[in-house]
Simulated scan of single mutants.
Amino acid sequence: MASEASKRFSLAVKYQRLRQELTIAILIFLSVLLIGTVGYQVIEGWNWLDALYMTTITLGTIGYSETHPLDEKGRIFTIALIFMSIISIGFIVNRFTEAVVQGYFQEVIRLRQQKRLMEFLDRHYIVCGFGRTGRQVTAEFASEDIPFVVLDKEIEQIQQAEQLGYRAVQGDASLDETLQRVAIERAICIVCTLPSDAENLYTVLSAKTLSPNIRAIARASSEEAMKKLRRGGADEVISPYITGGKRMAAAALRPQVMDFVDGIISGANRSYYIEEFLIDSKCPQVGRTLNEARLRSQSGALVLAIRRADGTLLGGPNANTVLLEGDLLICMGTSDQLRQLNQILSPISERQPPPREPKSLPPKD
């Protein structure tokens, strides 16, 4: 952990030092140019244009003849000016060469392009950590064409993410400044897949402080960490070990059920999909029962469950269940059935943006 922090610090210090030294080199050169111009004006009594011209050809080592004949003091000053020019130009060339070799200019261009991309991000997802878990999350997002940005402190991970065509930003996800760089205030959800439970906790706390309404999903390595992350504001906490163990047990005890559910969730089963639909105040079905709304008969989609606004989950709702504002319908059906259900819940006249389509949906006829 300490070595990673020192590595990030040294990288930042290196670019900061290069920028400062390049600035100093340019200032030194301009100072020498100014000293030469003023010196010729004072020593030789030339006008500013002749003094500037003589200084320029001296610094450039062009070898043109003198503008006016020089006396002894002028020649001594010219010799000193030549030495100053050699030192200043040598320093500039040295700093510029190091900047090119170290990739400073490429890094500046990359950061500017990255900043422009961040300005256009809206309603996106933030994936913190590009390890094994983070890679799987981003692969799923990419397959469903979900806008997202990867955040990792390791430059190697960022380079690998960029090679895959992902937006990626290097930085510590637990810092407010880093989260603001990836437009946390406009993001829908943040997924914390960092290797340390402490880092995930700090990131969730920072994210919830900057954007209280953002949905935070975090990875945990133990049950104790899961409890702390929930207390820290995480909306969902997942332990790969606990979840993986449960799925392995379910696959052993109920293999057909697991195949069916996995196929629907992952999109491997192209016949049926599961989607969620939010009932807002403009939905014409608010206040109606499922029987009155006739969602099943009109669309063919099946309402599996309803999550109330207070968090209550109604599994297998019956015909008398009333649809309320803020309800989240969890529905299953074919791609056409889900599209039809979306039209029923959010008619075009209401100008409601449709939910994202399920992965690998065939095009409309």
Rank of each mutant, 00 (worst) to 15 (best):
S88Q: 06
G165S: 06
I242C: 00
I306H: 00
E144F: 05
R75T: 13
R19G: 15
P195N: 07
G300M: 08
R123C: 08
G39E: 11
D280M: 08
M248N: 12
S10I: 15
Q352R: 14
L164K: 12
S211G: 02
L52C: 11
S211Y: 05
E292S: 12
A319N: 11
R307I: 13
L175G: 05
T193Q: 03
T209E: 11
A173S: 15
G60N: 02
R288M: 14
H124E: 00
E156H: 11
I82K: 04
I238R: 07
S65A: 12
R296N: 12
Y40K: 01
T61M: 10
I92C: 14
C331H: 04
V182S: 04
D152C: 00
S65T: 12
I190R: 00
G90Y: 00
K228Q: 13
V108W: 04
M1E: 10
Q340S: 14
I155N: 11
G232E: 01
V169C: 03
I242E: 12
R215E: 09
E66A: 13
D310G: 10
R351V: 05
F260K: 07
R123F: 05
Y166Q: 08
I155D: 15
P240A: 07
G333T: 09
L313T: 10
R19I: 05
Q340W: 06
E185F: 08
D145T: 00
F148L: 06
N213L: 05
V303M: 10
E224I: 14
G245E: 03
